[in-house]
Amino acid sequence: MKSLICGSLAYDTIMMYEGRFSEALLADQLHKINVSFLVPGLRREFGGCAGNVAYNLKLLGGDPLIMATIGQDGAPYREHLDKLQISQQCIKSIDDSYTGQAFITTDAGGNQITAFHPGAMSFSHHNKVADAGDVKIAIVAPDGRDGMLQHAQHCADLNIPLIFDPGQGMPMFNGDELKNFIELATYVAVNDYEAEMLTARTGLSLEEIAQRVSALIVTRGEQGAEIFTGTEHLEIPCVKADGIVDPTGCGDAFRAGMLYGLTNDFDWATTGRLSSLMGSIKIASQGPQNHAPSRAEIEERFHKAFGYRL
């Protein structure tokens, strides 16, 4: 059964800074920052939340359907998706815009500073959820503001179970709008920083948010993740990675595990563990879409980490 992934397609320009950002920032001068970071390492990757989630879901054997907008420079991305055999049915080209562009600088501590040009994302509302046909679940991830609002509402109107994943798009919405997303959603997924921002903007505690959805998922990096359901509070351990190479796209890999678990009716403990494993696999590889374990390798790593098979 298809999983509808509403979100961005983007090119990621990823730069590696060998020091730490904190060493270049003066606490008493934050009102007039003027810093420059020497970045010996630079790569250009296929990225964007929708692309990253779909890539990882495909690795698991899922059936991702991307709903996104792409620009006049989108031909390489379309060729990439063709090679992956990922449907482009709901990808719309915007000929007078560029594809979204993320410029990500990562320091030696894994901290990131990102600048993002939305480009074609700003027209994401031109896509209609009804055009996707029969889907079992959907996720609304960072995208154009109007598109996120519209896609969440349309999923609710069509009774499609929805994961709301505000991510770096959260600053676009005020407290009332975020509350409305929560009301429309079946599940909410955030990292620990986003969880604090969500509670601050809505005035709702994590417990209150959890009461409004079937499950609230909070990822906490190396500390694993927490899943709050109506009856359970699960602590999901972090899976030891082969190496800590690049955190870009780890959250998207985690969400692919969620989609796979939910579409296959796994319990929350198994869904959370699979999600944690996918993040662990991704962080050991440069870029968000370069790791390529087989499904059999993923299953074996799951068994090794948790003592039972999917």
Rank of each mutant, 00 (worst) to 15 (best):
C6T: 13
G7H: 09
S8N: 12
T13H: 12
I14L: 14
M15C: 10
R20I: 04
R20W: 02
F21H: 02
E23S: 12
A24C: 10
L25K: 00
L25R: 01
Q29P: 06
H31T: 13
I33M: 12
V35A: 11
L38H: 11
V39R: 00
R43D: 11
E45D: 14
G48I: 10
G51D: 06
Y55T: 06
L57A: 03
L59S: 05
G61M: 02
D63G: 02
M67W: 12
I70H: 13
I70M: 14
A75T: 15
E79Q: 13
H80P: 03
Q88R: 13
D96C: 08
Q101G: 02
Q101W: 05
Q101A: 06
A102H: 02
T106S: 05
Q112L: 11
P118K: 15
S122F: 09
S122Y: 10
G133R: 05
D134W: 06
V135I: 13
A141L: 12
P142D: 07
G144K: 11
D146A: 12
M148S: 06
Q153L: 12
H154W: 06
I160K: 09
L162N: 11
F164K: 01
F164M: 10
D165M: 07
P166E: 07
G167I: 04
F181E: 01
L184F: 03
Y187A: 05
V188E: 07
A189C: 10
V190W: 02
E194A: 03
E196G: 11
A200E: 13
T202E: 06
L204W: 14
S205P: 09
R212N: 13
V213E: 08
T219S: 05
T219V: 02
E226D: 08
E226H: 07
I227H: 05
I227N: 04
T229F: 01
G230R: 14
G230I: 10
L234E: 06
P237H: 02
P237T: 00
P237F: 00
V239M: 04
P247C: 07
P247K: 07
T248F: 08
C250T: 15
G257K: 03
G261A: 04
G261H: 00
D265S: 11
D265A: 08
F266D: 05
T271Q: 00
T271L: 06
L274V: 00
K282N: 14
I283N: 04
S285C: 14
N290A: 09
P293F: 01
P293Q: 01
S294Y: 00
A296Q: 15
K304Q: 15
A305S: 09
F306Y: 04
L310E: 01
